[in-house]
């Protein structure tokens, strides 16, 4: 006789397998498309395992699309963005959480509001501005824009996190003789580590996926995310080279998978810590 416990387990497995399938099948499909020759991509009936798998698409991309330069540019922009934005956002989040004034409230609302403005609305004026101040197509300009992209989300998450750290901890530190900087660096920052790790990882993925900024505000500096739009056109100039698109897709996805695998523990800790405190 099947017990209730077993039924629950079966149900959980069905849910887990269904969710896994929904998430993993598109990845699998992109992968097999990337190793399927172009002439077999749209065959009917659909082949779920390629008959003639090939790595030629990957070899083509490595040889012809300047991948190495794109990876270096991406690495430079993302790491610098993460480092600077984290420092700025931690300070901002602490201020927004611990101090109370009309000015701060308005500033916080402005930051939140900026999340709601679509990129395309600001594209043209920002394009002119970047050119006029000499930041167009420079690492500095791109890093500033990437930082501005991640700040609202990061500040929002970190502020909520700091708000949930009891003020009594800081008061106890003050009674023990800690000054402001000691309180920040020895008390608050260690407590914020899970949240910082989580937003850093989320921001890393967000930056890696960022498409609009490098497309619009750079020409010579090219990153991985825009590479997917720079694949050779087919003979007829109108068809999309789906085999190459799939291969490039996997090249872009791979760092995210590696990064999340390496830092999985921190991501889970951060999410759970945030969940409990909220």
């Amino acid at each position: 006789m099947i017990t209730r416990f077993k039924l629950e387990n079966i149900f959980k497995w069905i849910i887990a397998l269904t969710v896994s399938f929904i998430i993993l099948f598109p990845l699998y499909w992109i992968f097999i498309s990337s190793i399927t020759p172009a002439g077999e991509l749209f065959q009917r009936p659909i082949k779920y395992i390629p008959e003639n798998p090939t790595l030629s698409n990957y070899i083509y991309l490595i040889k012809n699309t300047g991948l190495y330069d794109k990876i270096i540019s991406t690495f430079i922009i993302i790491t610098t963005t993460l480092l600077i934005s984290t420092i700025i956002c931690v300070m901002a989040a602490y201020s927004f959480a611990r101090y109370d004034s009309i000015g701060l409230k308005i500033a916080f609302l402005f930051i939140l509001f900026s999340m709601l403005i679509p990129n395309v609305v600001t594209a043209r004026p920002l394009y002119d501005f970047m050119r006029k101040v000499g930041l167009y197509d420079t690492y500095t300009g791109l890093i500033i824009l990437y930082i501005s992209r991640v700040i609202p989300f990061t500040v929002l998450i970190l502020r909520n996190f700091v708000s949930n750290i009891p003020i009594t901890i800081e008061e106890a530190a003050a009674i023990d003789g800690a000054d402001f900087s000691q309180t920040i660096f020895h008390i608050i920052l260690p407590l914020m580590k899970p949240a910082i790790a989580t937003v850093s990882i989320t921001n890393f993925i967000m930056c890696l996926n960022e498409f609009f900024i490098p497309l619009f505000y750079a020409n010579n500096i090219q990153v991985l995310s825009t590479a997917i739009t720079q694949l050779p056109l087919q003979d007829n100039m109108y068809s999309v080279p789906w085999d190459l698109v799939s291969s490039m897709g996997w090249i872009i996805i791979l760092p995210i998978i590696i990064f999340v695998s390496v830092f999985e523990k921190q991501i889970m800790e951060g999410i759970m810590a945030g969940g409990v405190k909220a």
């Binding site: 270096i72 690495f75 430079i76 922009i77 993302i78 790491t79 610098t80 993460l82 480092l83 690492y139 890093i143 790790a197 850093s200 390496v262 830092f263 921190q266």
Partner: peptide
Amino acid sequence: LFLVILLAGLILA
């Protein structure tokens, strides 16, 4: 490791 990666990127920049 994460910090080392970040610093390497900054230095490269």
